[in-house]
Structure formats: C-alpha cells, structure tokens
Design a binder for these strands. Structure first.
Length: 580
RNA sequence: CGGCUCGUAGCUCAGCUGGCAGAGCACGUGACUCUUAAUCAUGGGGUCGAGGGUUCGAGCCCCUCCGAGCCGACCA
C-alpha cells in the first residue's frame, strides 16, 4: 500500500507502530490480558476509607491524554464506560530505563489504542476516582485517528453528527458518541422483556424458514433469489404468519418468533428493507384476549426499560398505562372526517375519497379505499397508544369474519405516534373461507394490485386438517425500539441500516504504468497528481502540462528525483495511446 | 420518483459582492509531577464530493453526475 494515500496522522501512527516493534513491543499481542474489574465497577465500589481496590487490572481504549511532563492523566473506555488513569514516570519505570513512559506512552501511543493497565485506585485532588498505573501493556495499536468528541458537564462538543458517517462507520459512532451503545443495549433489553413474558406463559420460541417458495402472510413486494441445485426461485420472507399457524395446527399451544423480514419497497425514516417483527400465535384465544395481552406486553416493556409507563418521545410524552383507547375503524373515520361510511359500496367510498382530496386508483377495492381514508385522515392523529379494531374484510384475507358483522373482521392494530406498531387477528381457521379469500386476492392481483397475496396450497391443506381457534399478533420491533429509546429514525435503532455502497475510486496497479514505459519512481507521483488510472493519463492533451505538474510536484515535495525531459513524458503518452 | 438542503483538514464548522484556503479540537516539536473540553509556546496538515462551463480569475455563479438528510409520492 502506498504511503502517499495516507493522511499525515495515519503516517505518524504507522511510524509509531514500527517504533514500538523496534523497542520489542508487539503492537498486536496474542496473549490474554486478564482484567478483574470494569470502569463502572471501580467508580461504584471504591471506598477510600476502606482502602479497597488496591490491585486492579483493567483494559480499554485510550480516549484522551493530558500529559504534564513526567506525569499524565488519560482516560480509557471499556465496554461499560470510562475511567481516568494516572501515570507517573517514576512509578511506571522504577528503574533507570524510562522508555515505557517517555517513549512508549508519550510518543507512540495514541487516542484509540487499546491498552491494559494494572495499579491501584485512588481519588485525585479534584475528586475524580482514578487508577494509578504501575504497569502498562499495549494491546492493540489504532492506525486511524478517531474523531475527538469532548464532554463537559453533560454537554457534548464536536459529536460526530453526519448521519452518513454515523451509519456507514457505526463502529466509530459507537466508540465516540456517548449514548449510542446505550440505545442498542436497550433494544436488546426490549427483546429480553418480551421473551421473558412469553416464556413465563409457556409459549415456545421457534424458528421458521426465511427462504420461502411462496412469500405469504402479508401484502408486500418480496425480494427474490434463486436456489441453484433445486433450480427454483425462492423469496425472502415478508412475514412468518403462515408457518407459525402451521405449528398451531401441529399442536403447540403458543408459538412466537423474532423474525427478520424483508420487503422490497421504499426506504424512509420508518422503513428499512430488512426489519424485525415479533409474531406470536396462541390457540383457543380471540382478538379481544390478544388486545389485553398486547397491553400487558407493551406496558411491561415500558416498565422494564424506564421503570415508568410514561415514555418521552420527541417533544411528547407517551403513556403506556393500561388500558389503551379502543375505537373501531369506522368510528375513527367518523371522528376525524365527520363521514359515516357504514354500509357504503365501492362507488360511494370512492366519492368520499374524492371529497376528502384522497387520490384513488381503479385497482382499489372497498377495503383498500377505507384503508386509504384511515391512513390519510386518522392515523397520524393517534399519538397515544390506540387500538383500531374491526377492519373491513377485503383488506384482511387471513382474518376471521367478525362475529356480529360479516362485512368486518376481528382485527386490531395498535397505533402509537401515528404509526402502526402491532397488528393482530382472530385467525381465520375455516379452510373453505380461507380458500375463497385467497381467490379474492387473486382477483385483486389481476386488477393490478401487485401486493395481493399468493395462494399457498400447503397452508390451506394444513387448515383442512383443522386449526383451533387462534389469535395472532405481530409487532414491529424496530418501531417499538424507536419509541422506547426516543429515536427519530429507524436507522438509529439498526446497527447497520441499508445504505448505497460507497464509491471507491478506481486505481490502476503499478504494472500498467510501467508497461507504458513510465519509470517506477514516477508512478506514485503521477497517481498522487490525480491520475489514478492509466485511462486518466491518456486524457491529458498536452505532454507539457503533465511534465510541468510532475516537475512541480518533485520540487514542492523535495523528492530529490531527476526530472524527466518533456520529450520523455511525450513518449509515455504516446505509449499509452498505443496500449489502450 | 418529485421538491428543498447539505458535501471545505482526521472531527466539528466558518469562508463577505467571484480576488493568496480559515478557526477550534486532533496531530508534530518544546515546557510542565493532581489534570479533566488541562495549560503555554511553536509547527505541519487541503483533489473545497466528481466532471464540465462562464470568467483575466471559481470553495462561491451555471450545467451534469455521485452521496446524504428532510418533506412529499409510492409503500406498512
């Protein structure tokens, strides 16, 4: 790798790396470094009057240094937090040889390096619990400078705020930006909270296929892939609903799965192409039971995470205290538009849409039109958790018909902060009805709805063997994490949100330049001047221009090379033109 | 897919009406034995996202492209 491509700071770090090796210090040692404490444990458990923690060993990343001649303060950051360390030359180097302090620590260690220290805990004159270092071990040298983020009195200075930087180099975001690791720890605690609840009820966590021959269970465009030895298309799952119901057919009472789903659709602050959904199915229950269970579940998550049912979100506060408001879809539409759509046919609904300035398409059926009205006029108003219940039958092909009204289904969605969070049904278990519903979907598909569901014959076969009455619920884990951690974008609760690939600039190898007769000593210069490919050199119209640039670069950087003659440069260009 | 905004040193950001490319932190060198956004002195560091155009002269004006964010469209 060419040293020319490195920034000044990177070059200095590489030189330090070499210097450490010359001193017989392996910058990347293999041996385990035994620690016996973490930064937060030290802060929590040190009592000066007890004189405890006199023999600690701790490892982490060097995050700041304040060098004052023969004594220094520094901070190391481990997985739990930061702790200040105090290094004194004559303690670190009790003998005559002061290399470890003067040369290794002061000259060749940098912010970002991993070190291990052993020593005793004390409190400095200004009152900060610190580790007085007696022994220092280099554990891993960092070759790239980290962004420097400073903090005082809880105020953060120079935080890395560029979203592109943060998401593409999440590892850096996690290291330097305070609080980012906390968000992801909380995300995991949400999963733990849910899992604990489900397990306590005796429900079984299962895994079902991600690669599916028929992408079922939701209305969405799938990603498609291909299996070579079977020579058939496979789809990345858009939902796992149909598989979990097969397991209920198989006799489990309750099953749940945390499922990575994939949808080939747009991306925005609440949509990533791959996302996590938790789906749960419980036999002998209905959607009314599931509503109670969902309330219990969400309230528990809020309590486990915040110790409170009130959760701050943006400039609002969201209360997850049971019970949540329950309102039927038709009543919600009445409330926010003043229109009562009870009993309306497709044409009347289309008329309502027009009068409300909602765009419609001819492919939309009755269910889609109602959904459109709700989505446009109601959903965004629902900030506090609200169950919307009893959806029109056309938009819920896997859901049982309402016990009192055949036009409706026993379905609810939980809306929080104007967005769908949960979706649940009394599951349709009548195989004949289910077959007809799939066929209606087929008609929608023929009408041009490219999200209508496929017919899954094997799923129908399973239902024909008999499925007990069952209620199922799905919850968007990413959106739940957003709300519970007060993050504005789904990208903030995914470690690695989907991004366009970074463009890496193409650079030709040396041999291409040599082939054109360019002497080896000039190749780096020419590349440094911006001619990273031989193609780019070819674009030079006058050899004198390139000649001048080369000579200028030679002089400016004191390379001490003998300049080529203009004629020589002209020959290079001719060679290149012949070659390509 | 459309509208708006942004892209300048490792990071955060200035950059006027088009006239030598700037600051703080970081980095190098020197001073300093309890500092904490350490301090003091001093020095280096730039393809101004890429390409083209206008101009005597472009970080700045115009066009094209790339990447990102926000709003909308589509979509759960």
């Amino acid at each position: 790798m060419s040293q020319f491509e490195l920034s000044e700071q990177e070059q200095i770090r590489r030189e330090s790396l070499e210097e450490l090796r010359k001193l017989g210090i392996n910058p990347y040692p293999a041996a385990e470094f035994k620690t016996n404490i973490t930064s937060t444990e030290i802060k929590k458990s040190f009592h000066p009057d007890k004189n405890n923690l006199q023999d600690v060993s701790i490892a982490g990343r060097l995050m700041s240094r304040r060098i004052m001649g023969s004594a220094s303060f520094a901070e190391i950051q481990d997985s739990k937090g930061r702790i200040q360390i105090y290094l004194r030359r004559d303690d670190l180097c009790p003998d005559d040889d002061k290399t470890m302090y003067n040369t290794v620590f002061k000259k060749h260690l940098d912010i970002g390096d991993f070190i291990g220290v052993e020593g005793f805990v004390f409190i400095t004159q200004v009152g900060e619990i610190s580790v007085h270092v007696k022994k220092l071990t280099v554990l891993s040298k960092s070759l790239r400078p980290l962004p420097i983020v400073k903090e005082k009195d809880g105020k953060v200075y120079d935080a890395v705020s560029d979203p592109e930087f943060r998401y593409r180099q999440r590892y850096v975001d996690l290291v330097v930006n305070p609080g980012v690791r906390e968000i992801f720890k909380k995300r995991t605690r949400i999963l733990d909270s849910l899992r604990t609840l489900f397990n306590s009820k005796g429900y079984l966590e299962v895994e079902t296929p991600i690669l599916q021959p028929i992408p079922g269970g939701a209305a969405a465009r799938p990603f498609i892939t291909h299996h070579n030895s079977l020579d058939m298309p496979l789809y990345l799952r858009i939902a796992n609903e149909l598989y979990l119901k097969r397991l209920i057919v198989g006799g489990f009472e309750g099953v749940y799965e945390f499922s990575k789903d994939f949808r080939n659709e747009g991306m925005d602050r609440s949509h990533n192409p791959e996302f996590t959904v938790m789906e749960i199915y419980v036999a002998y229950k209905d959607y009314l039971w599931m509503m109670d269970f969902t309330e219990e579940m969400i309230e528990k998550v809020a309590l486990d995470l915040h110790g409170s049912t009130t959760v701050p979100y943006n400039d609002k506060e969201i209360s997850f205290k049971r019970p949540f408001r329950r309102i039927s879809m038709i009543d919600a539409i009445k409330e926010y538009t003043g229109v009562d759509i009870t009993g309306m046919n497709e044409d009347q609904l289309r008329e309502v849409c027009n009068s409300l300035d909602i765009e419609t398409e001819s492919s939309m059926g009755k269910g889609k039109l109602i959904d459109e009205i709700f989505g446009e006029k109601c959903e965004s108003h629902l900030i506090q958790p609200t169950f919307i219940i009893d959806y029109p039958i056309e938009m819920s092909p896997l859901c049982k018909r309402h016990r009192n009204n055949p036009e409706l289904t026993e379905r609810f969605e939980l809306i929080v902060n104007g967005k769908e969070l949960c979706n649940a049904y009394s599951e349709l278990n009548d195989p004949i009805d289910q077959r007809e519903r799939f066929q209606d979907q087929l008609k929608l598909s023929e009408k041009g709805d490219n999200e209508a569901m496929f017919i899954d014959q094997d799923f129908l076969r399973a239902l024909e063997y008999g499925m007990p009455p069952t209620s199922g619920m799905g919850i968007g884990i990413d959106r739940l994490a957003m709300i519970m951690t007060n993050q504005p974008s789904i990208q903030d609760v995914l470690f690695f949100p989907q991004m366009r690939p970074e463009k890496t600039e193409k650079m030709d190898g040396k041999e291409k330049y040599l082939k054109a007769g360019i002497p080896e000593e000039w190749v780096e210069t020419i590349q440094k001047l911006g001619y990273k490919t031989i193609e780019k050199v070819k674009m030079v119209d006058k050899h004198t221009k390139l000649h001048q640039e080369i000579c200028g670069f030679n002089k400016k950087n004191s390379l001490g090379l003998k300049n080529p003659s203009p004629d020589e440069v002209a020959v290079w260009l001719e060679n290149i033109k012949k070659l390509i």
